[in-house]
Amino acid sequence: MNILLTGASRGIGAAALAALEASGHRVAGHSTRGGSGLIDADLADPAAPRRLWEQAVHALGGRIDVLVNNAGVYEAVGDDASDDEWHAAWSRTMTVNLQASSDLSRLAVQHFRTIGGGRIVNVASRAGYRGDSPQHWHYAASKAAMIAVTKTVARGYAAENILAFAVCPGFTVTEMTEGYLATRGGEKILAEIPLGRVASAAEIGEIIRWLASGAPASATGTIVDANGASYVR
């Protein structure tokens, strides 16, 4: 299958890219800065999703079967920030995490209608269900909305063989989190995970691979939790 994967340069995205390619899929990967064969696009730019989609379609020979929305930002803003800082943080997070993924999903739906169907896999977060820290209201809100978009696409387009899934990781080992786990916050994080460890990026990548290519059609609308039972619903 031909797959567009956003945020493919590191962490969960890089693990998903490896898993998908190892399974024989052709992947157009994206990152903000490009490089290493990735398509560059800054998803904070409202015009970027369409440019990225068009470049990916071209790179993949005119057909995309699966869209994986993995790119996102996790940037803190305090409740005591100035109004301008608060609004800027909310705007950027919603633009990158929600608007860009929704724009790409809309383009995917339009494209899938011309080829007989396709799949959308959204990488949301445990925070979309249980919330996040007091510095991340906007992040939790963006991921909760991403879950709602996933369910809406699943309900709205299943009859056209357009399927939608999401994965909601909890704390995951990536290049960005290894230091935190090893020093300041590791013991506290592990204490609330019944499994006794955080997820690996490879585990989340494997879930993405399965949702993109192996999950049965009747599972459309499914949200897969991957948090070591730190939040169950």
Rank of each mutant, 00 (worst) to 15 (best):
W210Y: 13
G78I: 03
N69A: 13
A28S: 08
P194R: 02
A59C: 05
Q55T: 13
E54V: 07
V96F: 10
L195G: 00
D80G: 08
M94V: 11
A202P: 04
T6N: 04
Y231W: 15
A89G: 09
Y157H: 15
A41C: 09
L104H: 04
V66C: 15
F165Y: 15
I208H: 00
P46D: 09
A100Y: 01
D83T: 14
A81K: 07
Q55Y: 11
F171C: 00
A141S: 11
N227E: 13
V153S: 03
R113M: 07
I39P: 08
A159W: 05
L38V: 13
K143E: 05
R209W: 12
R26H: 09
G205V: 11
E75M: 06
A16Y: 10
S230A: 12
S218D: 13
A154V: 08
T177E: 08
E21T: 14
I39Y: 01
S31T: 07
S31E: 06
V57H: 06
V123P: 10
D79Y: 13
I207G: 06
G118C: 04
E85W: 03
D40L: 03
T93W: 07
G78N: 10
G11V: 09
L98V: 12
R130T: 15
R51I: 05
S213M: 08
L107S: 02
D80V: 02
R197Q: 12
A145P: 07
A56H: 07
N69G: 13
V96I: 15
F165T: 00
A158L: 12
Y180G: 01
I39S: 04
V232L: 10
I39A: 03
A14I: 00
T114I: 00
S23F: 00
A48K: 14
P216D: 09
A59S: 15
T177A: 02
W86D: 07
Q135D: 15
I147N: 10
A141M: 12
I189S: 10
G7T: 04
L52M: 04
H111R: 01
L17Y: 03
G196D: 03
M1V: 03
R197G: 06
A81S: 14
R209Q: 09
A212P: 09
D40T: 02
T183N: 13
A59I: 05
I12P: 14
G214R: 15
Y157T: 00
L104R: 04
V224C: 05
H25F: 00
R155V: 03
L43I: 07
V173A: 14
G128A: 09
A202K: 10
A144W: 08
S133M: 04
Y74P: 04
R233F: 13
P134L: 02
G196Q: 05
Q110I: 05
S82K: 09
A56V: 14
G170R: 09
I3K: 11
G35K: 11
L195N: 05
A15W: 01
K151S: 06
T93P: 08
I208C: 00
V27T: 06
S218G: 04
G29V: 00
A89I: 01
K188G: 07
T174C: 10
D45C: 02
A56S: 14
N2S: 03
F171H: 01
L98W: 15
G61V: 12
I208A: 00
G34K: 09
A212T: 08
T174G: 05
A8L: 08
L181V: 00
H30A: 10
H87Y: 11
A124W: 15
A202R: 13
L163A: 02
